[in-house]
Amino acid sequence: MYGLKTDWLEEPTPRYYTLGDYEGETARWCTGCGDHAVLTAVQRVCKEEQLPPDKTVFVSGIGCSSRFPHYMKTYGFHGLHGRALPVACGIRSRRPDLHIFVVTGDGDCCSIGTAHWIHAVHYNMNLVVMLFDNNCYGLTKNQTSPTSPKGSKSNTHPRGAALDPLNPVQITLAITNASFVARTVDWNPPHLFATLQAAHRHKGLSFVQIIQRCPHYKAGVHDPLQSDPSQLLLMTHPDGIQLDDSIKGIFKNQREHDPSDMDAARALARDPEGVSIGLFYRNESGERYDEYTALGIATSRDEKIAALKAELSLYQI
């Protein structure tokens, strides 16, 4: 290791990773929780993309979904409520070799961690950010979240939430330098998988809102969407999320949307014809802060000492 310009090594003999290589502890989410479906989809993405588990990191905050890293057999960082993004950005800043996924919830991302959400999108570092949006605080036992529907009852608003919910996609699309913004649902595995795979392949910050069921505290909230796919608007495009025709056929309501068209993306984010799912926006050529933060990464020890000596000499008496 000593004296090497680069301080990581490639594994000399590649091997084929199976789904089992990504399976960590047994998931302890409630029966019927949408998180199980996302876990399965993510493990499949890892396998399809053949991500080395030792080179993959899942970073999360606090909440039901933030237990996610424990259920993967990769490196994981289960940190503080709302603070997954700064940690993930810090990891990314000097480790271009790692695959980094961020797991966050609607309380984590859209409430306590809002500042980091906005700035992480602006930084546009190469990360996959999955917003597990179940419209409520689950782990703290049913409080209103910023995305709770107006009128929905919780322990903090027993007479119903007072305000219309925040729309995470609308907000993300408003941030300068947003480069990949998508929405999917936990109950359509092919769409979920295809969206996350596209997110992983994107170079930059991929923001994916996953509409996710909480059978315990928000039972039935998404039943209409689930049982009547016509309430969803499937965005299609050759540059968008690719689905088999058999899956596409489920969606009666479809609209071709060019993901390079930001104005159209912002219009669709208002869900004019039902809840839009698919890829709202993608820009592969956006500025990436991780390209800036990685500068100087190969500086040798001799160069470091020389730089300090040169600097000290300026202060010499």
Partner: peptide, 24 residues
Amino acid sequence: AGGLIHQAEDEIAAAGFAIGASYA
């Protein structure tokens, strides 16, 4: 000297970013 200055969005993020780099 090959170093990075990151001006974070707030003090919390400044610590979080440093912790992330250190963890890595």
